Amino acid sequence: MKVFQRKRLFILLIGIIILVALIGYSMQDRKNETIAEQFVKDTVGWAQNLVHTPVEYVTGIFENIDDIKNTYEENKLLRQKIAEYKSLQYEVQELKEENDELRNTLDKTESIRDYNPVQATVISRSPERWIEQVTINKGSQDGVEENMAVITAEGMIGKVDAESKFTSTVKLLTGFDQFNRISATVSREDEDDIHGMIEGYDQESNHLLLRVVEESDFDLEEGELVLSSGMGGVFPAGLPIGEVKEVKPDEYGLTRTAFVEPVADMYDINNVIVVERQQPNSDTSSESEEEAS
């Protein structure tokens, strides 16, 4: 038994000596590695490469997924920003147009200071009667009454057809007929004015119908401006109505009908002015032609 123990001790001692010798040998500054060292290094390197390649591939897949997700989120955010920018552009454009319209309306208000203007906004428009009437946000409590003229910065668009306390319905010129007439005139500097009556609207040509009610040596010409004459005692004088586009005599040649294009855009109405004509003086109260029924 003692011999066997001594033998194990001897073998252990020899192993420790060999291990120390190998460690000392490996720590020497050598240029060339042994075959065993090269084999071990190559084996370890190949194993590392074998493990690293699929790990790197899988890691790359997850990184690409993260990049795609980030790109999607960034694109989504950019699309949102672009949409907000476009919306802001439209809003700025609308505000600019509304500002210009309000400025023009203010200028028009100042130009008719002899009358009582009531500024109003269109609040509704029925699709079934789109070209016939609109509803505004001013009523009898604001001084609005039936048959008052309604204009925009461009010109006349119609008259008050009915009013309630807070709102009013405006009949547009495009909805006029033989029962809703306007006393009109074509003013000329060097010649006599031509007077007539706006007596309706032609749906086919989209023109107002002006019937000349008096004989005249002068024919209407295309492009001449038609204004309200104020002869009916309801509408103020000098409100632009439209421009003459064509003149046709009746079948007997006794009267002439002019096709007048409205100066105001009947399809884009936002801000309007209700014009209350001042009460006529006693010497002019005899004017009797009724403009609106």
Score class of each variant (00 low, 15 high):
145 E>S: 10
124 S>C: 04
134 V>Q: 05
70 N>I: 07
73 E>W: 07
66 D>I: 08
110 E>I: 11
85 Y>E: 12
91 E>M: 12
69 K>S: 14
169 T>P: 02
117 P>H: 02
166 F>D: 11
133 Q>W: 06
76 K>M: 13
157 I>W: 02
150 V>I: 07
76 K>G: 15
147 N>R: 05
105 T>D: 02
97 E>G: 05
133 Q>R: 11
150 V>G: 06
64 N>M: 06
167 T>E: 07
87 S>K: 14
168 S>D: 06
130 W>S: 12
124 S>P: 04
142 D>A: 12
159 K>P: 00
139 G>E: 03
84 E>M: 06
126 S>D: 14
111 S>G: 00
138 K>L: 05
94 E>L: 09
164 S>E: 09
101 E>M: 11
133 Q>P: 00
162 A>S: 15
126 S>Y: 03
112 I>Q: 00
106 L>K: 13
78 L>P: 03
129 R>G: 01
96 K>L: 06
64 N>A: 09
128 E>K: 11
165 K>V: 10
99 N>H: 12
119 Q>C: 09
114 D>F: 06
159 K>N: 11
150 V>S: 07
155 G>K: 01
164 S>M: 03
65 I>T: 09
159 K>F: 08
122 V>T: 09
68 I>C: 08
100 D>I: 10
137 N>R: 05
70 N>D: 08
107 D>F: 03
101 E>N: 15
64 N>Q: 10
67 D>Q: 10
126 S>V: 03
138 K>Q: 09
164 S>D: 09
155 G>W: 01
157 I>N: 05
112 I>L: 09
128 E>L: 11
150 V>Q: 04
105 T>G: 04
73 E>C: 06
81 K>Y: 08
66 D>M: 07
